[in-house]
Computed example of a mutant assay.
Amino acid sequence: MLTNPRSDRVKAVRALSRRSMRARTGDFLAEGPQAVREAVAFRPDLVRDVYVTPEAAQRHADIVESARVADLWVNEVTPEVLAAMCDTESPQGIAAVCRALDLPLADVLADLPADALVCVLTNVRDPGNAGTVIRGADAAGADAVVVSDASVDVYNSKVVRSTVGSLWHLPISVGASVPEILAALRGRGVRLLAADGAGTTLLHDADLSGAHAWVMGNEAWGLPVEVRDACDDVVRVPIHGHAESLNLAMAATICLYASAEVRRTSR
């Protein structure tokens, strides 16, 4: 059992809270039972080490057993050690060091089906929003999520927690510029739908057939004019009450589910 919160290993894991260290090592920390469960179940090849307190090992015996069956390193640690490793104030007793899972943009687009549904995050800076959009894309059955170089790091601990495990469920590409992303999607025959409050097309009137990508903008200022102009249509979610606007993650999920429903009925 690891008992020293000041050991080199603990310091190395804690250092993954810094983006520079994640970029240098190619590793990140997944905290909490849901994130670790999904990583072990869906991408055990990317899990380097699992750290768990004795109490959590009993409470989440299924995760520990799955990790051992997958021949992963499972390390028991004291609560103090786990707290020193994690970014959250109250860790849930289990965490895992994982390798980055993103794919090159070309690889993601090469495997898209004919009726592909893609979600593009252009300048999304809020970790909670980014993680929740990835979770919504997963739930709606999207084929990929593409995150631009101007957006938050998807391996930020808050993003990872907000995905609630969806990070390991669908292909994700990060790091390309917005113009590069839009050009690559268009080159694959994917129509570009800008989701923006300035849109003249209402969601229920939008053409959601065939391969298309929802292009999502920044939480505060939405999509810049040049991005909207580069898309095939600019679509807005109608607001029937008195709310000024919708949260980015809410709007993204509504748009993705509208597309999922059209795809479901056309297959």
Results as ranks from 00 to 15, higher is better:
M1R: 04
T3K: 06
R6Q: 15
V10F: 10
K11D: 13
A12M: 08
A15T: 01
R18A: 14
R19T: 05
M21D: 03
A23K: 07
R24Y: 05
T25Q: 06
T25G: 10
T25E: 06
D27K: 11
F28L: 02
L29G: 00
G32V: 04
P33D: 12
P33C: 10
P33R: 11
P33Y: 09
V36F: 11
R37M: 10
R37Q: 13
A41T: 15
R43D: 12
P44Y: 09
L46D: 08
Y51A: 01
D62T: 09
E65W: 09
E65Y: 10
S66N: 14
S66M: 15
S66T: 10
V69F: 12
L72N: 05
V74R: 07
N75L: 12
N75Q: 14
V77T: 03
V77A: 05
E80K: 01
E80F: 00
V81Q: 01
V81T: 04
A83N: 02
T88R: 12
E89V: 13
P91S: 09
P91I: 07
G93A: 11
A96G: 09
A96F: 02
C98I: 05
C98F: 01
C98R: 02
A100V: 07
D102G: 01
L103R: 14
P104A: 12
L105H: 07
A106H: 01
A106M: 00
L109S: 03
P113L: 08
A116K: 04
L121N: 00
T122S: 11
T122Q: 02
V124M: 06
P127G: 11
N129K: 09
N129M: 11
A130Y: 01
T132E: 04
V133K: 01
V133L: 04
A137C: 05
A139Y: 04
A140C: 06
A144C: 06
V145C: 13
V145H: 04
D149S: 15
V152Y: 06
D153Q: 13
V154C: 09
Y155T: 11
N156K: 07
K158D: 14
K158T: 14
R161Y: 06
V164L: 15
V164Q: 15
G165A: 11
G165R: 02
S166H: 10
L167W: 01
I172F: 10
I172T: 05
I172Y: 03
G175M: 12
A176L: 13
I181K: 04
L185F: 06
L193N: 03
A194W: 06
D196C: 07
G197L: 11
G197H: 03
G199R: 00
T200A: 15
T200W: 07
T201Q: 07
T201Y: 02
L203E: 03
L203D: 05
H204M: 07
D207W: 10
S209N: 01
A211Y: 04
H212F: 02
H212W: 01
A220G: 10
W221R: 10
L223E: 01
V225L: 14
E226I: 10
V227F: 05
D229K: 12
A230Y: 06
C231G: 04
C231L: 08
D232A: 13
V235L: 08
V235P: 00
R236C: 01
R236N: 01
V237R: 00
H242M: 12
A243M: 10
E244P: 00
E244F: 11
S245E: 03
L246P: 00
N247R: 03
N247Y: 07
A249S: 15
M250A: 14
T253G: 14
T253L: 11
I254Y: 04
C255F: 12
R264I: 09
R264L: 15
